[in-house]
Design a protein around this nucleic acid. Structure first.
Length: 190
DNA sequence: TGCCCGATTAACT
DNA sequence: GTTAATCGGGCAA
């Protein structure tokens, strides 16, 4: 199972996002299989980078293969992977994992044993893994991060992104079809 | 400077 | 179904 390097992320965010489904994300050895992501591009009104560079989103304007961590609603941390060439300011939001590694650490941080409440949501995921602002701008192909390409082909669902009010029509949320670890189900196909 | 809102979650009714 | 928790950006004044 090959390790994902910076080169993997240096492509269109719309290619990278679906390919992350089924990949394994570990942070200090704790994590699981990515089952849900969303793509954000700087031409997209819902993206943090849409209105230009600020102190918060600066890492989005740098090279691909780095972590962008931001504070959401003043409470939670959210983890993104920066994609495309430097200046493109696009990223993939990691929204949910199927927990596989370091269950005890995740249960302790999340204060629950329910596997579906450990990493099913962007804020829950970062709490379970211990990701905070301190890890903003870290490389994704070096400790404490470990990313491994998926081992098998998977069936990918897509649909509208969650929790946004701009560009709601863009179906840039991707997930593992049928997974019980999604933050919300995808509407089944017609 | 002040005010509103957001890539959320959990604990309510 | 509703609401509180709480921080940074954007925009009006």
């Amino acid at each position: 199972m090959p390790r994902l390097r910076k080169r993997f992320f240096n492509r269109s965010v719309h290619e990278v996002a679906p390919e992350l489904i089924g990949a394994k994300l570990l942070f200090n050895g704790v994590g699981g299989l990515i089952v849900e992501v969303e793509a954000y591009h700087h031409t997209d009104p819902a993206a943090h980078s849409y209105n230009g560079e600020t102190e918060r989103n600066a890492v989005m304007f740098g090279p691909a293969g780095y972590a962008y961590v931001y504070r959401s609603y003043g409470i939670h941390w959210c983890l993104n992977f920066v994609c495309e060439e430097a200046g493109s300011a696009s990223a993939v939001l990691i929204r949910a994992l199927e927990p596989t590694d370091g269950l005890a650490a995740m249960q302790r941080r999340r204060k629950t044993d329910d596997p579906r409440l450990l990493c099913s949501g962007p804020g829950r995921l970062t709490e379970a893994l211990g990701v905070t602002r301190a890890h903003n701008a870290l490389a994704l192909d070096a400790p404490p991060f470990e990313l491994w390409a998926r081992e098998r082909e998977v069936e990918i669902a897509s649909g509208p992104r969650i929790g946004i009010t701009k560009a709601m029509e863009l179906p840039w949320r991707y997930g593992l079809e049928g997974s019980r670890f999604l933050s919300k189900p995808f509407r089944s196909l017609p």
